[in-house]
Amino acid sequence: MAAQSGKDMLVKLDRTGSGDYLTVAGLRTRSLAFNAAPVDVTDAESAGRWRELLEGGGVRRAAISGSGVFKDQASDEEVRALFFAGTIRTWQLLLPGFGTVSGPFQIVALEFSADHAGEVTFELALESAGAVGFAAL
């Protein structure tokens, strides 16, 4: 696979639950992390006293984060409203040349910062709130 442009990695919000996605504008950086907590089933009879894990056990989660500048009034207002309401919505992360990750997420952090001689920036963090799916491109 050839290298992909970072600007094509998009974070999108399903505003109404109808599949009408709105791209969160102004993001300069984006990331996606998957994590799974293992379930340790090691006991006194484990071979060589090596740890054993329960296959398929544990809690899985996905996290999306990004930072940038607010540039689009519609997505700015939507993000702020969702954070303050604690609302869970369907979000998508498009990974160019790879696929789309989508599912219910909640905004768990929304931070603003500014330099005296610069623009106001924001950081956004989302945590999965249910099953997350993947569709290959």
Rank of each mutant, 00 (worst) to 15 (best):
G133R: 15
V120N: 11
R28N: 15
G130C: 08
L124K: 02
V101Y: 11
Y21M: 04
R30Q: 10
V39G: 04
G58R: 02
T90R: 06
L54E: 13
A131G: 05
V108F: 09
R49N: 05
A109S: 11
F83M: 09
A25K: 13
Y21D: 02
I88H: 02
D43S: 06
T16A: 10
W50L: 11
F70H: 14
A47G: 14
L54H: 11
G118A: 12
G66D: 01
L22Q: 01
S75Q: 00
G97R: 00
V59I: 10
T87S: 05
R28A: 15
I64N: 03
A85P: 10
R49A: 04
V41A: 12
G58Q: 00
G86T: 04
P104C: 01
S65Q: 04
G133Q: 15
A81D: 14
S65P: 03
D115F: 07
W50K: 13
F105N: 01
F83C: 08
L32V: 04
V24S: 06
R49M: 08
F98W: 13
R49W: 03
R80V: 10
R61Y: 07
V79G: 01
L94E: 14
D76I: 10
S128D: 08
G68Q: 05
S18E: 15
V132P: 02
L22K: 02
S102E: 09
L124A: 05
G86V: 06
A125M: 05
A85S: 12
A47S: 13
D43C: 01
F34W: 14
A36L: 03
Q92V: 02
Q106S: 12
V132I: 02
L126R: 01
G19T: 08
V108M: 08
S113F: 09
F112E: 08
R51S: 08
G68P: 08
A47K: 07
F98N: 10
T29W: 01
V79C: 02
T100W: 07
A33H: 06
A37T: 15
D20C: 12
L13P: 05
D115I: 05
N35G: 13
G86I: 07
D40R: 09
I107Y: 09
L54V: 06
L22E: 01
T42K: 12
L94A: 11
S46N: 10
D115K: 10
A114C: 07
V120R: 11
P38I: 12
I107N: 05
G66K: 03
V24G: 06
R51P: 13
R61P: 00
Q92R: 08
G118T: 10
E52L: 15
A37Q: 11
L53G: 13
T100N: 12
R60L: 15
A25Y: 03
R61T: 14
K71W: 01
A47I: 15
E119L: 04
Q73S: 12
D43I: 00
D72R: 09
L22R: 02
V108S: 13
S18W: 11
A125Q: 09
V69G: 04
A74C: 13
V132F: 06
R15C: 11
S67H: 03
G86R: 00
G103N: 08
E55Q: 09
E127V: 05
V59M: 06
V41M: 14
G56C: 04
S18D: 14
A74D: 13
R28P: 15
E52M: 15
L32C: 07
G17N: 07
G57S: 12
L110Y: 06
G97V: 00
V11Q: 08
D20E: 15
A114Q: 11
S65N: 03
V108G: 11
T23Q: 08
S65A: 13
L22V: 03
A85W: 06
